[in-house]
């Protein structure tokens, strides 16, 4: 599709589109059928990322990051979510973020049962309808036990430092529920959602986990997600929703399981994922940004001596200290940008 738009002279279709949309040049670049199909999401959803180079700022990560997320409310008032990287656990431990739609969930009982069943230590921290569990049980065994004995509990994220929180509702309410403003940590990525491809649910909110300490947020829409989902399901990837971004996350997960590096997985994504996207990928020690070859989903990057920030719109970055003097640029299409050690 991408190549088709660039090289095929479908002039007469475009003339018609431009005549009716003279103020929206990015939209005007789409042929008419695509325009009607994607009109609502060509402008919507917001993604943000903040990576602190200056370690002294880590105590105020949440205070700097929460306004970024909230500034993107206009782009995504349906639901919001974020991944925060903090308090890495020991080598032999795993940190799980769990969520359950049932408000009656007895997290303490889960903790006790898990310790008993797996003969392990488990430390539980309940935050809203999410719970962060740190355990020294083998990660695979813990996952299997959760799937077996707590089928309604979803594993939202896992790794050594990642914690993922997401919920329906306004970004400011989601930020408040999970005490984002007071969070400390090294980096965070977040998403405000205006749903177009699937229902407004907590499970359909971003970020989506793609592996240990890895997650993905997405602005855009994928057009070949049903085909890819069927293919990945045959390869053993399990999906919780009908969401297109979850397919992108599943694709990344599968690629990484084949032993590919994150960079290789993202490169494969550029080849296989068809549609409009700006992705931000959170990693154990940084984040990556990638845009589709047409790049009509907005993105801006800003960097100072102290931090690197990514956002759908610069206004989400404007309040950061030193933003006025930051180096600001738009990431190029079809190019992978990374901060931290991404291999």
């Amino acid at each position: 599709m991408a190549g088709g738009i660039v090289t095929t002279p479908t002039r007469f279709g475009w003339v018609l589109v431009i005549a009716h949309n003279s103020s929206f040049a990015a939209v005007a670049a789409l042929p008419a059928p695509l325009l009607s199909m994607h009109a609502e999401d060509t402008t919507m959803c917001g993604i943000v990322g903040l990576y602190l180079k200056d370690r002294t700022l880590q105590a105020s990560l949440g205070a700097l990051f929460a306004p970024m997320l909230i500034e993107m409310t206009d782009r995504g008032p349906d639901s919001a979510g974020f991944a925060i990287y903090r308090d890495p656990v020991g080598e032999n431990q795993t940190k799980f973020t769990l969520a359950c739609d049932d408000p009656e969930t007895d997290w303490q009982a889960l903790d006790t049962d898990m310790e008993k069943a797996l003969a392990c230590n488990a430390r539980m921290d309940v935050q809203g309808d999410h719970a962060v569990v740190v355990t020294d049980a083998a990660a695979m065994a813990a996952q299997a036990w959760l799937a077996e004995s707590r089928p309604l509990v979803r594993i939202v994220g896992s790794g050594r430092s990642i914690e993922i929180f997401k919920q329906t509702g306004l970004p400011k309410d989601v930020a408040e529920q999970f005490k984002l403003a007071s969070a400390k940590g090294s980096h965070a990525i977040g998403h405000t959602r205006m749903a177009t491809e699937s229902a407004v649910t907590t499970a359909g909110s971003h970020p989506f986990a793609t592996g240990l300490d890895l997650c993905l947020v997405h602005n855009g829409s994928l057009s070949n997600h049903n085909h890819l989902r069927r293919k990945l399901e045959r390869d053993g990837i399990v999906f919780q929703t009908e969401n297109d971004t979850e397919v992108a996350a599943g694709f990344m997960t599968w690629e990484l399981r084949q032993g590919r590096s994150l960079h290789q997985a993202l490169e494969a994504g550029l080849m296989e994922l068809d549609g409009f996207y700006t992705f931000c990928v959170g990693t154990a020690d940084g984040f990556a940004v990638v845009r589709d070859p047409i790049a009509c989903k907005h993105a801006v990057l800003a960097e100072t001596e102290s931090w690197v920030a990514m956002a759908t719109e610069y206004r989400a970055i404007a309040h950061l200290p030193g933003a006025d003097a930051a180096r600001i640029w738009e990431p190029e299409p079809h190019r992978i940008y990374t901060w931290g050690h991404v291999h």
Partner: peptide, 9 residues
């Protein structure tokens, strides 16, 4: 610098 579609239409 400027983001995309500078001077459009």
């Amino acid at each position: 610098s400027a983001s995309d579609s500078a001077g459009a239409t």
